[in-house]
């Protein structure tokens, strides 16, 4: 089974981000691997370890070699760089046709990627790619068990409900969280990968899809409740807590 993991880079919100004309200055923005893609990679490598598979890491050229080298150090068997002129701020919808063609060319049975990416307003590469491929899609995956004939994808819903869904391949899965935190790649392994991992180049004929919409304006969320701080003095703070409990009916009666 060939598992293609699509890895995207997103602006690193821990770094200082600068604005140009009121929007993010992508040329200056420090980028990092999308956290959900990190989990998707972990799930793919876990699947490989459990059931045997070939894991192919796929990224746009603009993501940089480091992302692919790290994927190899983490256990990916192949690293493929998609060669195409793509603006840094191209949305998931726009790049989906490229990814779909690449997945086909790489002989993917299963395409996994993060359930979303905070880099653009749409940020949902999995459904767009599935639509391009006309393959079934499962989003919000919290585990992919590949030991059975057909992979079983776990999804979790509110209220503690969960589902185990058997997937007919080929398919696309959007990963919410891997079963374990993404494994640490030691510097030694990374250095080894930098020296030895060969990154394949893949040309695609597909063109970027049209931009589906434009961000007009952003607003902060409406304030519905306010935080109130307790007093610094512990005795007063205790009184305040008791008062809050009383108001909410958690405790009743007078002070005991």
């Amino acid at each position: 089974m060939n598992i293609v993991v699509i890895l995207q880079t997103v602006p690193d919100s821990a770094e200082e981000l600068t604005l140009a004309d009121g929007v993010l200055d992508w040329d200056e923005a420090p980028l990092r691997l999308n956290e959900f893609d990190d989990h998707a990679l972990e799930e793919a490598v876990l699947a490989k370890e459990e059931a045997g598979a070939t894991v192919i890491a796929l990224a746009l050229e603009s993501a940089g070699d480091r992302v692919l080298q790290t994927a190899v150090a983490r256990g990916a068997d192949r690293a493929v760089k998609l060669i195409k002129e793509v603006p840094l701020d191209a949305s998931a919808r726009m790049v989906a046709p490229l990814m779909a063609e690449a997945a086909r060319k790489l002989g993917a049975d299963l395409v996994v990627t993060g359930v979303q990416a905070p880099g653009d307003i749409f940020g949902q590469l999995a459904p767009f790619t599935a639509a391009e491929l006309a393959w079934p899609l499962l989003g919000g995956a919290v585990g992919i068990d590949c030991s059975a004939d057909a992979p079983i994808v776990a999804q979790e819903f509110g209220g503690g409900r969960s589902a185990q869904i058997s997937v007919t391949l080929p398919a696309v899965v959007g990963v919410q969280a891997a079963r374990r935190p993404p494994r640490y790649v030691s510097g030694s392994k990374l250095r080894q990968a930098v020296q030895s991992a060969s990154i394949e180049k893949l040309d695609v004929a597909a063109e970027l899809a049209d931009e589906p919409g434009k961000l007009v304006t952003l607003h902060s969320p409406h304030k519905t409740t306010a935080i109130s701080f307790l007093d610094d003095d512990p005795v007063t703070a205790v009184d305040q807590i008791v008062e809050i409990f009383r108001q909410r009916g958690i405790v009743g009666g007078g002070r005991g």
Partner: peptide, 8 residues
């Protein structure tokens, strides 16, 4: 014990 990172 992170020898590679130290080298970097």
């Amino acid at each position: 014990g992170e020898e590679g990172l130290f080298q970097d």
